[in-house]
Design a protein around this nucleic acid. Structure first.
Lengths: 337, 337
DNA sequence: ATGAAAGCGCTAACAT
DNA sequence: ATGTTAGCGCTTTCAT
């Protein structure tokens, strides 16, 4: 059942050549007689030869595999990023190992170790919600393996980043709410130690301050990034008997969770409560009323991250200064505000 | 900048041992003195040793990497499947290389070649829309590399499959429409050479036949799997002046495309036209009215596919009979019908 | 233009 | 219990 793999030696012995000659021919070494080369290529084809990339990488001490680690693959945002990464890597001749931490720091640590052991040429990662330190990423830097962080970036590490300007995006979005006449604006915030949610919260506060609106801590509900968090967040607002006239949610999933509950309570969007999300998920334009939100470009973020990584990989010897790429966002005004 | 990697030889020379002793210790070989082993493990830790898995796999002629190839990563369905695969592979100690064909046969062929060259231990694949032959997959079988096909399966190859029963799922769904009183039921069908869409079409026809309803070819519109296809499909129905009283769409994306246009035309769902999808995307429950659809369990499909693959990989020597696993679907009745 | 020798990091089989 | 030898498939350097 298990067929032995065809190697350059097999090709060589078929043609009474030495395997090094075959190796050279396959890599277009100028030494080789075109006639010989032709015969070698034909024989390779006919024997169904596939080069052993592991052996190549092993010998050359360079791999063409890149690691990608995200919290959850099956979230729109990350699936988009991964797709963007994949396309760029494909064009550049790299393959990609994908891991998901499931928001667990322990798993993320194991994943990154495995990636180092697998000799990845570089790593693109969005850290998990429970990741507080970056020690496991410093391994990469110590070993000179290029690193690109995106979306959620940890403190305490200097590396290439691909992020959106969460602060200003949130600021402008909330500013827009205020301009539209809303005053009591609640915020369904994300985890406070995650960069993106922390910055969106800061943007929210800054916009209120700028407009001389008092920040009411009771209107800021901390939760996670998921739909349930939106539901429970809005429940808390109800329970406190403290309904705002607008809600800014940390992302569209949370907004969608709140959305359902708002309607269930017989409240009209946006007349009774306006709703603003972040992320522009596919569902957001389908909601009725459709959701006003901040559009990120996750696919593009992935492309940019992959390009940055490849750049580093292919100029590994040169001194490389980490830089941060900020992907533009866009406020998409729909009918929920 | 580029730090040389730490090898078992480094550990060995530190301790004045031979590198094979270190190798054995790291793999818990019973030969090794517990005391020695302890020192070796400590030294490995302190030197920040990471085993070179490529060298291991190379030497052992077995890899712990599996290939996964889907048409498009950033489609709900495939992202879910990939996530399911990843979790199972993680638990079993495998890593996964992910490719996307972007619905191109050429790219799929290149991807699969690359996976063979990368010495994957197995392959899980859903073929692209433009893939008509399975020759590129037979390479895996010739080389004894386990193979699992899911969702879209090509003809002409005998391998493990993980699919849903598209025929019966569609049959029951359409049967339900008929029972609800709809008679003129259109079908926005997918590509006719893809197994899933072909089978859903067959199920649709069978249900009509069973109920003595004539099949009107003009009510069957062929298109792709995307939202645009739903929009253009419904346009064709309008153009033909041939509005049905219900539409069965090949999947939820197509249904969503039709959905928007139906409402745009001032028609009421389900009173003027009922709408039935397939797949139960996240958006489907958010539509208003919410979409009746057939729930697949893509995450579970991924888990099953990964388990089947691992089973094959780990019993490679034994004769393995390809089997087909059919994942149960469920008709989710909501308000669009 | 072709061949020989060496070695990448690791493990298995066989000494000692 | 530890060490020696050899070799996986490939590429590089140095003969011929």
């Amino acid at each position: 059942m298990i067929k032995k793999q065809v190697t350059i030696k097999d090709i060589a012995s078929r043609l009474n050549l030495h395997h090094t000659t075959v190796s050279k021919a396959l890599r277009n070494h100028p030494d080789i007689n075109p006639e010989t080369k032709k015969r070698i290529l034909e024989t390779a084809e006919s024997l169904d030869y596939h080069p052993n990339i592991m052996a190549q990488s092993f010998k050359n001490k360079k791999s063409n595999t890149v690691g990608v680690c995200v919290p959850i693959i099956n979230l729109d945002f990350f699936a988009e990023v991964i797709s963007g990464i994949q396309n760029v890597l494909y064009d550049a001749g790299y393959t990609m190992i994908v891991c998901q931490s499931n928001e667990s720091y322990e798993r993320e640590e194991i994943d990154t170790r495995a990636l180092v052991s697998n000799q990845v040429a570089g790593l693109i990662i969005a850290i998990s919600q429970t990741t507080q330190y970056a020690e496991h990423l410093k391994v990469f830097q110590r070993r000179g393996i290029p690193l690109v962080l995106f979306d959620r970036v940890p403190a305490g590490i200097e590396a290439c980043n691909v992020i959106v300007d969460d602060f200003h995006s949130a600021f402008h979005a909330v500013q827009y709410l205020i301009k539209s006449g809303y005053r009591r604006i609640a915020h369904l915030a994300g985890p406070s130690h995650i960069s993106v949610s922390a910055n969106r919260l800061k943007g929210y506060k800054a916009a209120l301050k700028k407009n001389n609106i008092d920040i009411e801590e009771s209107l800021i509900i901390h939760g996670g990034f998921r739909e349930e968090d939106g539901t429970s967040g809005f429940e808390q607002l109800i329970a406190a008997g403290n309904l705002p006239d607008a809600i800014f949610a940390v992302n569209d999933s949370v907004a969608a969770g709140a959305f359902l509950l708002i309607k269930k309570n017989g409240l009209k969007i946006p007349d009774d409560i306006a709703l603003l999300g972040f992320g522009d998920l596919k569902i957001s334009s389908y909601l009725e009323p459709s959701l006003t939100t901040v559009r990120q470009s996750p696919h593009r973020m992935g492309e940019i991250a992959a390009k940055m990584l490849i750049e580093q990989i292919e100029h590994k010897d040169e001194k490389f200064t980490p830089r941060t790429e900020i992907v533009k966002t866009e406020l998409i005004i729909r009918h929920s505000t």
